[in-house]
Design a protein around this nucleic acid. Sequence first.
DNA 1: TTGGGTGCAAAGGCTTTGCATGTGA
DNA 2: TCACATGCAAAGCCTTTGCACCCAA
Lengths: 161, 161
Amino acid sequence: MKMGEIMPNNHKQFKDLLRTNGLKVTNQRIAILEVLNNRPGEHLTAEEIYDHVRMEYPDIGLATVYRTIQLLSELNLIDKLNLDDGYVRYEIGVKSQEDNCHHHHHLICLDCGNIYAFQDDLLENLEERINETLGFEVVDHEVKLYGHCKVCIAQEEMKSN
Amino acid sequence: MKMGEIMPNNHKQFKDLLRTNGLKVTNQRIAILEVLNNRPGEHLTAEEIYDHVRMEYPDIGLATVYRTIQLLSELNLIDKLNLDDGYVRYEIGVKSQEDNCHHHHHLICLDCGNIYAFQDDLLENLEERINETLGFEVVDHEVKLYGHCKVCIAQEEMKSN
DNA sequence: TTGGGTGCAAAGGCTTTGCATGTGA
DNA sequence: TCACATGCAAAGCCTTTGCACCCAA
């Protein structure tokens, strides 16, 4: 899929999704989705989304950002990420970007705070096993791995030499 | 390890840990640890811990509970769990209970809200692979699996029949 | 004795909500 | 037109902090 196609498709889907649910297509909603769509892999707080959107749409209110974020989240267009730092973060959802519906995992560097995405099917296995042993039917998962990223490990090594 | 041994050992360890770090052993701290220690597998909010502790120690303040929780968490005696419902929850840590230092995973039922623990070494594999492919050194992880538990699945089936 | 600990109340900080106004359909 | 959406400000709510008093060491 070419990069250029992602956004228009996304917009069309988004608009249809809103209309189907009896919701209105507003400039604010489009603008917020665009901000997130233009920053795949970034994990933005509501405040950060607000700041970005204001550049294009200065009169928007923070409450609208919160309300729209919630909406987008319910429509599964964006994914939530909670790093326990007092902010909830959002990124454009995997469903918006590709057909692959798997959530990716997050690698969070304890040194620099950067977040890396990691795709893996290993959980499939685990989910099957859980179903077999406990009768628990897994429908979603959230995996956060904390540690030290390549860059920070290298920097640490440089220091000690 | 016999059940009866857990608490005293835990207390001794805890007291030593405090003293070693130049911290004081207070009734409040002991009482809070006891509440958590008496409820392994439960996931209590600060408020819930507060309510339990007050039964034994009526004059304790909520602020003390928060401060102690933070302390216990820093000493790795309790584990944090965030279910994104506005409360941070705590449970007695694996390190307090056994020598096995592995965090367990949480199965969260979307229907009844119950939380089940699940121990698995599958992540070991994943962590190794991540280290090899990305050079990221994983030191901790948090896995939450959402779905439907055995009981709720059974109840749902009963309804539809 | 004395510095860390506690209780109380106030402040913080992210998020939600009420309400009057605005605007897609 | 009209129900939904928005902006603003106020309220909510969990958690943290300031401060005077208390108590373990």
